[in-house]
Amino acid sequence: MNQEAVKDLLYKMADDQLILGHRNSEWTGMGPLLEEDIAFSSMAQDKVGHAQQFYNILHTMGEQDPDTVAFMRNANQFHNCQLVELPNGEYDFSLIRHFLFDHAEYIRFTALANCPIKDIANLSKKLKSEVKYHVMHADTWIKQLGTSTEEAKARMQASLNEALPYALGIFEPSKHEQQLIADGIYPGEAALQAEWQAVVEKVIAKTELTLPAWDSLEPVYGGRYGTHTEHLQPLVEEMSEVFRLDPTAEW
């Protein structure tokens, strides 16, 4: 088993969760409905917790402790896809991103539940059951707003069009892709993406929204290897501001 390849896979998953968890937490106190305020806050807590568990596994593989990894890196050291670092925008954009990302996550955890590395498989089995709630939440709102008023549909459609090229960036191939597939760690990004597209099509078909042809979209890659938008560094600074005041403090 190639340790570097597995670490690469774990880092991108953990960083996606950490960054989107923080974006979700920005809805705390700001949600358009109390229920949605609670929903995004809960999903934030889940995602930061999931990130921590993957950082824990990385720690057992010789990486630094989870707090150091989470708070002491700069934006160009993060492996998250650009989708998760984009600002929340209005609620429609946050919902569309949540829908696109969490379906991908659910498919990823389902695949990794069969990973030959026991710690990864066990954790993925667990997280899959939790992310199920995120997916159910997203689908409910996509269906509701995607069949609602003209303004709702126009907003959802505009956000969908904006988010899709970034969402394809979730599946940016790893430089260890063939190795990971050959070792049976997981089926690889292309396989996950195919499954994800089918699910997205199925849910969107229940709305009055439309999907562009997949091959007309230009995926936004780069996030997996440190190329990020201008939005990530300020997020990282805000997230780590307290920790960096005194990294040795006992909490």
Binding site: E35, E36, I38, A39, M43, Y133, H137
Partner: peptide
């Protein structure tokens, strides 16, 4: 009302 509640393990 919502699958999320005051703690991660509760719905409302």
């Amino acid at each position: 009302k919502t699958p999320f509640g005051p703690t991660l393990c509760r719905s409302i």
